[in-house]
Structure formats: structure tokens, C-alpha cells
Design a protein around this nucleic acid. Structure first.
Lengths: 95, 95
DNA sequence: TAAACTAGTTTATAATATAAACTAAATTTT
DNA sequence: AAAATTTAGTTTATATTATAAACTAGTTTA
């Protein structure tokens, strides 16, 4: 009846990050921060969790002398996102 | 961009309970327990939280000599559920 | 009448989310 | 050129949550 909701994705901020990454090739940490209105600390932690889960990959570079963190969704992450969205239908769809 | 997700509803078990209650006039605790596969303790806590939020109302009776707990969704709860579902679209819709 | 079962509640613990505090370097101001 | 401010984060501490374990209270069965 109710499939389990992936706890990595069932978190407002991580879900927002994944939602943003689904639509683009890659995104900067600062872009994600702006779009989600998250604090840098919170975002940093959640990005690390998504990376540990291998749902995203993270590249650290420098841009204009400043550190730059680039995030990309992985195939595994895309798959998990789609599975999560389907599972949600058990809960909110078909009312 | 991303509306906040009501933390009362952004919980797998509470969301499942609300999802079940949306579809029916009322439901027994034991029915909710079976359908959600939750432990009684966990369900008891989450039912109390939904009641505290006034998203459901809870009636305690006896049936065949055994205690019976009946749950019903309130208008406020239905409203919150619908708002939650709409907010979710920001995260999972429109990909 | 003892054991097992029903229908829960309470409590303890583990996991989570979040903000506050911090690091390190770059830039701007005085 | 030192001090203050800004950028781009990370680490750590705390408060909240979810969950299971333990418990309560009564009922049924052997």
C-alpha cells in the first residue's frame, strides 16, 4: 500500500536541491543556496549527505579567486528521485 | 520558488494516516496500524501529534469489551493536506 | 488461574535538521 | 598597509523527530 519514502530524499532541503539539479546540467553551491533560501551551513551538510548517498557529485574548483562548489545529479540520484516521486503517489495521489 | 512543507505532514507515517483518512469518514486505530504497518507505539505518538495540530479528531470508545480509538480528519486537516500536496508540486512536479 | 492476547500509552534512544560558530582567503575601506 | 568587510564555504552544538522498547490495563482462552 504505502511504499517507504527514501529518507535521503524525504527532507525538504535535500528534495529542493535534487529538484533543482534534475532540471540543469550542473549548479553552483551559491545558486542552490539562493534558490532554496537555505543557510550555508545547512546546505553544506545536506549536499554532503546527497554526495555520500551518491545521488550527486560535487566538484570543488576556484572561480575568480573564490572557491566554487559545483553539484551535478548522478544517474543513481535521478533514479532515486523518480522512485521517490512515484512512491509519493501512494500518499498524495488518487484521493 | 519552494514553499515550506508543513512539518506536521512531512512525515511518512503521519502523511500515510492523513492519506487514509482523506478517503474515509472515519477509521479505527487498528485499521490505520494495519494499513501503515506502523508499530502501535509509533502510531499512537503520531496520532496524538495530528490531534494536537487539530488535523484529526480522536474518539475513544469500547467495542466488544475492548478499547477502540476512532480517528476522523477535520476540515483544518483536509485543508492542510491539500496545501501540502500543492506545495509538493514545487519540488516534484514540473520536471 | 496462568498464559496469551488486544489495544493501546509512555518513555528512552537514535537519527535528523538546523543554526551558530568558525575557517580561510579575497576585497574594500580608511 | 592595517583593519574591517565580504565571499564561500565547513564544523560543531543543539533542538526536534521518529521510532522502538517497555509498560499499562483489561480480556479471552486453555
Amino acid at each position: 500500500m504505502f511504499k517507504d519514502l527514501d529518507p535521503i530524499l524525504h527532507s525538504q532541503l535535500r528534495l529542493a536541491v535534487m529538484s533543482l539539479l534534475v532540471g540543469v546540467k550542473e549548479a553552483e553551491f551559491t545558486f542552490l543556496k539562493e534558490k532554496t533560501n537555505a543557510s550555508a551551513g545547512n546546505l553544506s551538510v545536506q549536499v554532503q549527505k546527497l554526495r555520500e548517498a551518491e545521488y550527486i557529485e560535487v566538484e570543488k574548483k576556484f572561480k575568480n579567486n573564490y572557491p566554487q562548489t559545483i553539484c551535478r545529479i548522478t544517474p543513481k540520484g535521478l533514479d532515486a528521485f523518480e522512485t521517490y516521486v512515484k512512491a509519493l503517489q501512494d500518499y498524495v495521489g488518487r484521493q
